[in-house]
Every structure is written in C-alpha cells, then in structure tokens.
Nucleic acid binder design. Structure first.
Lengths: 138, 138
DNA sequence: CCAAAATACGTGTATATGCTCCTAAATATG
DNA sequence: CATATTTAGGAGCATATACACGTATTTTGG
C-alpha cells in the first residue's frame, strides 16, 4: 500500500504537523490552534458551521477544537443575531498571541518551503488545494 | 494563512480520509486501520517501534491504534525474542478482512486518481513522499 | 398563522495523535 | 562482573477528528 493516497497524505501531515507544533511551542499553541486563530481573525463574527465548511472540518470538530482556545481566553463565542448560531471572534489576548505566533509560523513555513524547494512546494500546495476542491462538494 | 503548508495538508487529509473511511465502511474499518493491517501484512512479526518509524508515527500512537484491531481479533501482539519488544502479526480473521477491504480500497483509490487526474496524482504522491523524506530524520 | 421541514448547535461515543513520565530488558563501560 | 546507559514499551494526559442522536430556532407551505 505504498501508493495509498490516504496513507501518504496522513504520513506527510504527521511529519509536517510535528514541525509546526514544535515551532509554535514557545507561543503555547498547536498548529491547528494557530490555524483557527488566523481563520477567525480574518472573519470576525463568523458562525461555527460557516467556518467549519471553509476549513473542510466537521462542525462538531470545530466546536471541540475551540474549547481550549476559549478556556485560554483567546476566542470569544457569542450568540448570533440568528439565535441558532454562535459567532466567533478573537479577544485582545487572542490577537496578541496570534501576532506573536505569526512570527514563529513565518519562520517554520519559510524553512519548509526552502527544504522542499520553492517550485516543489508550489506544486504541492496547488495539488492539495485542487484535491480539496475536487473531493469536497461544498 | 491560505498558504500554510500544515493547514493545507491537514485540510486535504480530512477530505481524503473521509472518502476512504466511507469506502471502507462496509468492511467495518477506518482508513487508518486498513493502513495498519496492510503494513503488518507486509512485515509479519515487526516490532512496535520499528513499524512506528516506518509509518512516521509516534510509538504510543501506534500502540493505541492497535488496540481496536486486537479487540476485533485481527491483530496479534506477542512478546518478541528480545523480551523488550512486542511483535505484530495478522490473525486469519485479520487477513480475511484485509483481503475484502483491499477490493474497496482499490475502488476508492482508482476514483481519487481519476478525479485528480493521473499525472497530478503522481506529482502529488511524489511530493508527499519527498516531503516526508526531507522532514523526517529517520 | 400554524405545523412541517430545514438549519444551527451540543453531547455521547469512538478513533487518531503525540508528549511526558515510568518500568523492564539489553547493551556498553569501567 | 557490576553498574550506567540505551532501548522497547506502557499509562496518563491533552488535543484532533467525525458520526449519530437530540434540542432549539428559523423558514416554508398550506
């Protein structure tokens, strides 16, 4: 099964995630959490389901992943105008953490791009994006 | 952060894993479990740490992922000659499940390759492999 | 306007992932 | 040969992921 698409993706994801987790450790957050902070930052007051669709992530997964960020006081979850929804926004503290994390993220991202080679990296990202587009109906 | 390597990998992995999970559902196993059965099948009596390194997976993660497979009677875990180690092998039942799952795997794998386009897929797999090689010291 | 359908969300359950700390066995070192 | 070090593995803890089922709110259809 050396050529299983799923296996190879998951394996590469493990390797890369460990690198990003390690790089973000000084900021006290995981790669996934950094992603969430950044995603919320660029879409203040987004609803949970809406964000989960953008991230190609199950709604309940997002809800649970938000939990530690709420506990740390980085993300605020409020009832939306539509009372069925909950809207997400960063606290001042959350914005500060994101700002600091961004520095470390840039560093590890640059390192990865350099290690893979710029053109390889570009092709990889293109392929990942198009994979998501083609496989994810939303 | 639209261009974050980690985010894009994880996102694509979620999309692809859901597809493979769905395809393997009739066999009662998840994509990850299929991978483990196949990996053990091709390396009978491999030790836990050795397999974990090959899969670029934390040793403790592998141990835990084996648990449901043991419970279902598909994988046997025995003490190795070196009494520190535990060796892994498929039971008869495990081999049967793998055989059936392989049919479904081939189908979904073909579908993904077709959807992405054969040459895109090949480039993607190459890039994933080389990413792992370059980032994983082992 | 009211009942049915659709939408947004949470909880329970289960697997997936990795770090830290601990124990047991094998190996290296003096 | 005895002890120190290395190696293999487990358990506790925390996050990541998604499905099934249930509840509340909004929208739709008559």
């Amino acid at each position: 099964m050396q050529n299983c698409t799923c296996f190879n993706l998951r394996k590469a994801t493990r390797a890369v995630t460990q690198l990003f987790d390690e790089a973000l450790k000084p900021c006290g957050l995981f790669a996934t959490q950094f992603t969430l902070l950044a995603a919320i930052s660029s879409r203040e007051n987004v609803a949970i389901t809406e964000l989960s669709k953008a991230l190609v992530m199950d709604r309940t997964t997002l809800t649970r992943n938000l939990k530690p960020l709420q506990k740390l006081g980085w993300v605020e979850v409020l009832q939306g105008e539509d009372k069925r929804t909950k809207t997400l926004s960063l606290t001042r503290s959350g914005k500060n953490v994101l700002k600091k994390a961004m520095i470390h993220w840039k560093k590890v991202q640059r390192q990865v791009v350099k290690t893979l080679g710029n053109s390889n990296w570009e092709v990889l990202l293109d392929n990942l994006s198009s994979t998501v587009k083609k496989l994810n109906p939303y």
